[in-house]
Design a protein around this nucleic acid. Structure first.
Lengths: 202, 202
DNA sequence: TTTTGGTTACACAGACCTGTGTACTTAGGC
DNA sequence: GCCTAAGTACACAGGTCTGTGTAACCAAAA
């Protein structure tokens, strides 16, 4: 089960470790010494691969900016599956919110480079929702896509402070209502109003 | 129009300045020297009022934890007004997200004290929504209240990175749909589906 | 007037941080 | 064997940060 020795490049080893430490403990909280020590390399080697900590931060965020892979499931399913995946990530103990939002919060509004990539990331997520909604023939896909990313980011923020994966389920239920309201069939009609009422969120 | 000289206590002056700097530039980004210099007092004085920076941070967050004042408007109106108020705050140039979420993001998961007050704050907001929903006779007020705070925090996070007050309006529209779905009358029935489609969120 | 409490000016210890300089070692390709 | 590229060890400059120690100051209360 353990993957083969992994012929990783040094740059990748650095990035991998920086990612883990930056994400889990915060960008400002981690010094380059700590990263180098964690890998067991000298600080000099790190600076031979990245000219500055800022460059390392930028590379860290760019590495986090992965496009969600294509899927052959129905668009509505894909959209809802987003929230299931979110719930799984919340449940993992190494989840610490959105790295882009955290970076903006930590580094402040002055850091234009960080803000730029954060905006790009958020917009890419919104566009992903919008494209699926267009496939479904939703009238105002732009507006609904925005509302869905609000639910995603809202549940991430809430989970960050509360450590409660149920936030993802709450977001999913809300998303269902919004989708149904836009004429999308999301099955499971009953759960909306009376009868078997949805699980409680404490 | 300018308020009278304001017989502020020294402690309050420190807190006020700490609030401004911590919130706008980040807790880690601001040193106690900076705060003292901004007021024009010596660092010694600051440490005579707060035993440590941690204590100052805690006091800063506690000061931010204000209960929303009571209102005699109808509950549904109060709920929706939340999002209007949010939009106004987004439009102000000194808005920098939720101080509690930011603090948790900045200080990391290790800081139990900060996390505790952040959780209390988030819960107080959720309870506020829930109480209004109960007044409206909504069936599952708990779940719906959670969904509404997701919209609030989602729009805050999105505005933090995008600087786009329209996020508050998007949240408000989503909130209307959720409320209507729970049987609450929020007027303005048309905006939901076809006809005059809602404003676009870029 | 004397005392007292808050304040100031200022130095400083001890950490930690980013980034650099330098000389040494090690491994592979020629 | 020799050269090159990459990494290592380690010191250090220059900065920032939190927190303390100390002596002087000033105003108001006693």
């Amino acid at each position: 089960m353990a993957p083969p020795p992994a012929p990783q490049t040094m740059k990748e080893r650095i990035l991998e470790t920086a990612d883990k430490l930056f994400y889990l403990q915060g960008i400002r909280a981690i010094g380059v010494d700590t990263i180098a020590a964690e890998i067991g390399i000298s600080k000099r080697t790190l600076y031979n691969h990245f000219p500055s900590k800022d460059a390392l931060i930028a590379a860290y965020l760019e590495r986090r900016f992965v496009q969600p892979r294509a899927s052959d499931k129905a668009p509505a399913e894909q959209i809802l599956a987003t929230f299931d995946s979110l719930e799984r990530r919340f449940a993992a103990k190494d989840f610490r919110g959105c790295p882009f939002v955290n970076a903006v919060a930590e580094l402040g509004p002055a850091d234009r480079a960080v803000k730029k990539i954060a905006i790009a990331f958020k917009e890419s997520r919104r566009v992903w929702f919008r494209d699926r909604l267009n496939e479904l023939g939703v009238t105002d896909a732009e507006a609904l896509a925005t509302q869905l990313v609000l639910l995603v980011d809202g549940s991430i923020a809430q989970d960050l402070v509360r450590d409660d994966p149920a936030m993802a389920r709450a977001a999913k239920e809300a998303a269902k209502v919004l989708l149904r309201n836009a004429g999308v069939d999301v099955g499971d009609k009953a759960a909306a109003k009376p009868g078997k009422r949805a699980a409680r969120y404490p």
